[in-house]
């Protein structure tokens, strides 16, 4: 069973790697934003550069998951290959876990340029301990965005999924305070951000990588978002199964 999940993950990755622009796309924006904004404006200050870098990582985690699941799942649902795979002697779990595994790998790939740029061109710095902590938190905060992507992918047809993912990602990033230094965003963003999934995730990341204080309310809000999105994703998955396979 678990080896079958690996098989599904492997072929999913092979499919993605054959169209490398897909990986390039998800890695491009955070890397470009690093070079355009973080390096010239915050690169010289170790604290500011570190915060800005983890903000970019949060941004990248959100966009890769939102797009690869939101758009990828709805694309797959439209292909006749999908019902064929359901006639093979395995349940939906292998395909599902294979997809999530492949998604994690692609997410890590899209983060590498951000980390390399931060290490080479900015004063951003982390202790080994902080690095491990930040890496773990990165995996943790990918959960709500994975669920958000799955909810979109399973509930919407392909064209609608692309639009919704595109419409969501920018306001979520801006209102979550990912575009600004901690505490430096416009008033409304500072008030709203802790309760958005992006803002909550960024605050956790800042706390892991720096001295940013943990905000219990913001963490609760993030847990709330995760639960809500999990419910929505499950509902969409079941509804899709029911509609096509009842």
């Amino acid at each position: 069973m678990s080896s079958l999940a690996l098989t599904h993950a492997r072929f999913q990755l092979v499919e993605t790697v054959r169209i490398p622009i897909a990986i390039f796309g998800s890695a491009f924006f955070p890397a470009a934003a690093m070079l355009a904004f973080v390096v010239p404006f915050a690169g010289g200050d170790p604290v500011a550069a570190t915060y800005a870098t983890v903000s970019m990582i949060t941004f990248s985690v959100m966009t890769t998951n939102l797009f690869q699941y939101g758009v990828g799942v709805s694309e797959d649902r439209a292909q006749p290959w999908d019902p064929y795979v359901r006639t093979l002697p395995t349940g939906p779990l292998a395909r599902f876990s294979g997809r999530v595994l492949a998604g994690l790998v692609l997410m890590v790939l899209s983060l590498i340029p951000v980390i390399v740029i931060a290490a080479l061109f900015t004063e951003a710095t982390l202790s080994g301990e902080q690095f491990l902590l930040t890496a773990s938190v990165t995996v943790l905060i990918s959960i709500p965005f994975t669920l958000m992507g799955l909810a979109i992918g399973y509930s919407l047809p392909q064209k609608a999924a692309i639009v919704v993912a595109q419409v969501l990602f920018f306001p979520l990033a801006f209102l979550g305070g990912l575009m600004t230094a901690p505490g430096a965003a416009p008033g409304i963003v500072e008030d709203l951000a802790p309760y958005l999934p992006t803002g909550g995730a960024a605050r956790l990341m800042w706390a892991a990588a720096g001295d940013y204080p943990l905000e219990p309310l913001s963490i609760l809000a993030l847990i709330g978002w995760t639960a809500t999105l999990a419910g929505f994703a499950t509902w969409a998955y079941r509804r899709d199964e029911g509609r096509r396979f009842s």
Binding site: F11, V14, E15, R18, I19, Q79, P80, W81, D82, Y84
Partner: peptide, 8 residues
């Protein structure tokens, strides 16, 4: 309906 993953 024939549907094969195009890039494989």
């Amino acid at each position: 309906e024939t549907g094969l993953p195009a890039s494989l």
